[in-house]
Amino acid sequence: MSAVPIVERRRPVANVYLGPVAFRVDVRCLALIAGGLAVLAVLAAWTMTLGSFPIPLTEVVKSTVGAGKPEHEFIVRELRLPRVLCAVLVGALLATAGAVFQGVVRNPLVSPDIIGIDAGASLVAVWWIVTGRDTTFLPVVAFGGAAAAAMGIYLVTWRGGVAPGRLILVGIGVNALLGAATTFLMTRYPIERVSNAMLWTTGSVYATSWADVRVLAGTLGVLLPLTVSLMWPLRVLQFGDDTAKGMGMRVEVVRLGLLLSGCGLAAVAVSIAGPVGFVAFVVPHIARMLAGPMTGGVLVLTAVAGGILLLAADTVGQHFLPVALPVGVVTAALGAPYFLFLLYRVNARL
């Protein structure tokens, strides 16, 4: 009776019961995650063979596990591996943050780099750098900036509810304002400090160290399980506040938890790699196209896909262009056309 073509989709779901613990596991999503991890490993190994001093793949693998030649081991373990790991972890953090924000706001056009969350982190971080403070606290400070920006946007948008359209408009406004403030800071401080900040704001994983990897991995280790468990209530929150409240959910608590963890993910990534654009925005869409609506499993897939995308972009920017470009430039070049395509698609459906 319906005029719309009927699309049947059944996903193989396995129910796992372990005493009081029980989960539904989407088998296809699990397979995709495994495949993604394999791709990631191959891509990472191959990337480490490239550079001004080429190293064969077998040597790269040996050096990684600590069984290579000393000169190779130094290059792989001290120079290339941290950069690769940073790229993967930054991609994973940003993509997860994007999925969280898109889910909370129920709008596919929202991501922390578009609505000014990254800009909040950047402003505070640039101020921290140009005033010459200790950069070990940069992640914490950046988180403060991101959270402040998120709260500001939320409060300005809130009128008995958050209308996604208004949130995007407010967010773009805040983004522009914070960007202007960042530029202002850069014109006010000595050039040698500013040039540091400048490189940072283009978004780059150049010259990252094991210390950075530890911060990123720690953040992901804490926040990814948290957000994966929050995907469970988010699934219900997406029906709207009324339905969610009617289901006995403390909507404000869940939403605050999601927003704070989203801010944390974005801010830590930004504090190390700078505001790398479009990863947060694009990757959740790709993951959803592959695996269906956002669930805990799809969120993990999003993280893996984010890692792949950023690592690939960094590889391209570093080795396959006439001039080595920071990864942020490459992701923007990829992301902008996708953004336009998505807008076109959304319009076509209306």
Partner: peptide, 28 residues
């Protein structure tokens, strides 16, 4: 009520069990 995009009927109905569930016991 507005359903999120791409949600299947079965998952929609299963979401109704939310008050009986916990994050660590998502299905019984």
């Amino acid at each position: 009520p507005v359903p999120p995009p791409d949600l299947l009927v079965e998952d929609l109905v299963a979401a109704g069990r939310y008050p009986h569930q916990r994050w660590y016991r998502q299905w019984s």
